[in-house]
Amino acid sequence: MNIFTVILVVIGAIFMIVAAIYAISRKDLLVATIATSIISLVLSVFFFILQAPDVALTEATIGVALTTIIFVVTIRNTKRHEEEEE
């Protein structure tokens, strides 16, 4: 653990939280899905930093590829935009 890893972790944590808020607040569901896959990407880097290469591989394949594709397929079959509330 050197100083560069610490800086990377701090930037990644802030990036993750911003992406999560963005994913929740956007009305366009496709954009929200891509933001969620960005969270998974940062998360797999975090797992690698935390010395868990097995979990990093799983998160990189499942979280980034497969979860995103099944959400995109569902959005293609339903509606892309969330309705306005209240």
Binding site: D54, T61, A65
Partner: peptide, 17 residues
């Protein structure tokens, strides 16, 4: 090495995807 049945299986599934 890191990896195993779950990861390898998912990688093969992405190939079919």
């Amino acid at each position: 090495t890191p990896g195993g049945g779950f990861q390898g299986g998912v990688i093969i599934a992405t190939g079919y995807l």
